[in-house]
Amino acid sequence: MNAKIEIKEMPKMDLAYVSSLGPQNLEQAYGKLIQWATPQGLMTEQTKPVTIYHDSFKVTAHDKVRMSACLLLNKPVKTEGEIGLTTIEAGKFIVGSFEIDLSEFEKAWTGLFVWMNQNGYKKADREPFEIYHNNFNDHPDGKAIVDFYIPIE
C-alpha cells in the first residue's frame, strides 16, 4: 500500500449530507444523497463524494460510529428532509493519497495517524474525512482512489 503524504492548506468546502450510524448504513446514506442530487444536476464527472467521521473506530463501537455521507457542492442548494448542509472549514490538513482495497481503509487510517505522531503534528479539534476520486466498483482491481484528511493545528 503506497501512500503519498503531504501537508495542505485547504479552502472551505460546502457539502450536502445524509447522516449514517455505522459503516453498515453508509451505502444506503449515499443512495439517498445521490437520489436527491441527481435530479438537481449535482451528479457530474466533477462531483466528489466525501465521508466525514464524527467518531473514532478506536473508541466507539463499530456499528455506532457516526458518519456523514456527503457531496462536495460547487453552488448553493436548498435541502429538505434527511438532506442537510454542512461545511468543512478552511485549514491545514495531513493528506494521504491512496489507491487501496476497501479492506485496507483501517490500515491506511492507522498508518496516517502514526505518521502524524512521528512527525510532530497534533490533530486539530475537527473531524477527519475522505474524498473519493472514483467508484471502486468501476476500477479494474476494485480499488478506491481516495484522499484521507486529518485536520492539524
Rank of each mutant, 00 (worst) to 15 (best):
N119Y: 11
V95P: 02
K12T: 15
G22H: 00
T44W: 02
L73Y: 07
G120S: 15
S103Q: 09
E106K: 09
K92T: 14
K123E: 10
R66F: 06
G111W: 04
N25E: 13
E9V: 14
N137T: 14
T87M: 09
K64A: 07
R66Q: 11
L72I: 05
L42W: 03
N135A: 14
Y149R: 09
N25C: 02
I152M: 09
R126K: 14
S68H: 08
S103M: 07
Q35S: 14
I152L: 07
K64L: 07
I34H: 00
S20L: 09
F129R: 02
M13N: 01
I52R: 05
F57M: 14
M43W: 09
L21P: 03
D63S: 11
D141I: 01
K107M: 14
G41S: 04
G111H: 07
G120K: 12
M10Q: 08
P11T: 06
K32C: 01
L26I: 12
T79R: 08
P11G: 10
G142S: 10
L26V: 09
P39R: 04
Q35H: 12
F136S: 13
D138M: 04
T60D: 03
N135F: 01
G41I: 02
F113C: 12
L26D: 04
V59T: 15
I34W: 02
A37W: 02
I34C: 01
M1K: 07
I100C: 04
V65W: 00
H54F: 15
R126T: 09
H54L: 15
E80Y: 06
E9W: 10
Q46T: 11
P11Q: 06
V18A: 08
A124C: 09
S56M: 07
K92L: 13
S68Y: 08
E153H: 08
G111Q: 06
F105P: 01
E99F: 00
L33I: 04
A124D: 13
F93K: 04
K92H: 12
G111I: 03
R66T: 04
P49I: 01
K123M: 14
I88V: 12
Q35E: 14
Q46E: 14
D141T: 11
K48L: 13
E153L: 14
M67N: 03
M13A: 12
E89L: 13
Q24Y: 01
K78Q: 15
K123H: 08
K4C: 05
E104P: 04
I52C: 06
K122V: 11
F57T: 08
V114G: 07
E82K: 07
T87A: 09
M10H: 00
N25F: 02
M67H: 03
K78E: 14
L85H: 02
